[in-house]
Amino acid sequence: MNHLPQAWGRPRDDVYGAYDHSHFQTAGPMQHTQSPIVTGTSVVAAKFKDGVVIAADNLASYGSLARFTDVKRLRKFNDQVVVGFGGDVSDMQYLDRLLLSLDVRENYQSADTPLSAKNLHTYLSKVMYKRRSDFNPLWNHLLIAGLDSEDKPFLASADLLGTTFTSPTIATGFGAHLAQPIMRRSLPDEESVQNVSKEEAVKLIKECMKVLFYRDARSLDKYSIAVITKDGVELKEDEKLENQSWAFAETIRGYGTQTA
């Protein structure tokens, strides 16, 4: 009998025939993530003259099931950066831990200048691009909101393909279709950022969150919102949509129980 270690625990060849290694799934090409599992929907963000407002709802969906309703998808990195995560929640948790280890390493020696939003966007976009180039993407669309090294408002995105983008307003997921046009009405270009106050920006983002809740079936009326200015990060994680009006729903035809 074969007493060698590699045979331990295996069926005896002389009794059962040669071991079929395909049970270990070593045959065939290796597969990485083909689709996200538990997902968060849109993240929306807009610059204003002194900083950036960013928001995301507190829902993590399992397919079409509203599985987790208290998931915080905005993560504060330091006093001038917040990262908003759309897409796969477990990949978001991985990135969150990656950012935590970055923060720990960053503070081994006391630094005069903390990492800016721009630094963090560069870092995260490289992580995302590396992973897609390995054919093993992190299934997220990230918004990095905060201040750059000159304390100017900074907002940029990085997605699962490693694509980067910057704009006075950005929305991921469904928000790219539903919220972006609303935000562009008051923030069409970089110049217009100077004309928008913090209050106006917060109002705009809240309006977008409401529209998204009306029209995105994978969204929730509980959300998180963060305002990043020179004074630091003001993060609220248990907000509820206010003054909803579903009157418009009556005018929608073609769905539900209507007959005409």
Partner: peptide, 8 residues
């Protein structure tokens, strides 16, 4: 917990 997103 590191990476925790909700309180359950």
């Amino acid at each position: 917990v590191d990476g925790q997103v909700g309180s359950g």
